[in-house]
């Protein structure tokens, strides 16, 4: 049959077009490259907040203008070295920490309600974003965010440094009926979060799952057996609104940023 046809591309291309398996295999190889090159290095290069075994974060070194290295213990909270040993006595500025039980419950609500559809949590290193939202976000700040929440659309403002900006009461009012405090808002009313109770068992399960993650799990030294055991009590008779507000109030104040330090490379 068509074996006698003239070939208008190359012999090899013609062979591929005749051979299903060959085309299948070659395609499978061709599409693999890009992904491997872009994803795999993020697991072993510095500045990717990959804790790794040795705790050096693959030799990440944030330097100030004089070239002095900021110790990673000042960026990622480490109960062993820090003066504050437990989640309870962690203070803003102690460094990036995983979420408390209540915040974890709030983060679940954040994802469930699709807040990320309108709010980013990733401040880019631009002067206007600095003036509007604060210091640019760094890799370490989302290292415990299993299912990252950077978002891709700002129908509403960025939330990466929201913590402490408003009072709980303001959030309570705003989240329930945004237009009552911000007339121009197009944000939905989330009043119903005030009528739903946090599911304590789910929180306990979630904390446990976070310690089991293959990449950047929460250290057992932070989510200790006691802490997980006490989680249910911590969220007892809290509403989903309380939880969400706790999550929002904890955003962006973990690291104390020094002037003139390059936290990206």
């Amino acid at each position: 049959m068509s074996d006698h046809d003239k070939i208008y591309s190359t012999k090899f291309q013609d062979k591929i077009e005749r051979n299903t398996l060959l085309m299948f295999v070659l395609t499978a190889i061709a599409v693999a490259f890009g992904g491997i090159v872009e994803i795999v290095p993020l697991f072993y290069l510095p500045n990717t907040a990959m804790a790794g075994g040795d705790g050096t974060y693959n030799n990440t070194q944030h330097k100030d203008k004089q070239g002095n290295v900021i110790p990673m213990s000042k960026i990622v909270w480490n109960p062993e070295t820090s003066t504050h040993k437990t989640l309870a006595d962690w203070q803003p500025g102690d460094g990036v920490r995983p979420y408390t039980a209540l915040e974890t419950a709030g983060r679940y609500v954040f994802i469930r309600e699709g807040c990320y559809a309108c709010h980013s949590q990733m401040i880019r290193p631009f002067r206007d974003e600095k003036d509007r939202y604060g210091h640019y976000s760094i890799a370490e700040e989302s290292m415990y965010d299993h299912t990252y929440q950077w978002g891709s659309k700002r129908t509403g403002p960025d939330l990466a440094r929201l913590g402490g900006k408003y009072s709980d009461e303001w959030h309570r009012k705003h989240l329930k009926y945004p237009r009552d405090v911000v007339p121009e808002s197009v944000m939905p009313n989330f009043f119903f979060l005030d009528n739903a109770m946090v599911d304590g068992d789910k929180v306990v399960k979630t904390l446990t799952v976070m310690t089991k993650m293959p990449f950047n799990p929460v250290p057992k030294s932070i989510y200790t057996a006691e802490y997980i055991a006490g989680a249910k009590a911590e969220v007892a008779n809290k509403t989903e609104l309380d939880a969400l507000i706790a999550y929002l109030q904890g955003l962006g104040n973990h690291v104390k940023f020094e002037e003139g330090v390059n936290y990206r490379d």
Binding site: E38, I39, L42, F43, T48, A49, M50, Y108, A139, E141, S142, M143, Y144, D145, H146, T147, Y148, W150, K202, K205, T206, V209, M210, K212, M213, P214, F215, N216
Partner: peptide, 21 residues
């Protein structure tokens, strides 16, 4: 992802790696 229950699960990746994936 690792399931928490029938309704919820969380990505095995986090932050930077999860974003790229």
């Amino acid at each position: 992802a690792i399931p928490v229950d029938w309704a919820t699960s969380y990505s095995v990746f986090s932050g930077v790696q999860d974003a790229m994936v």
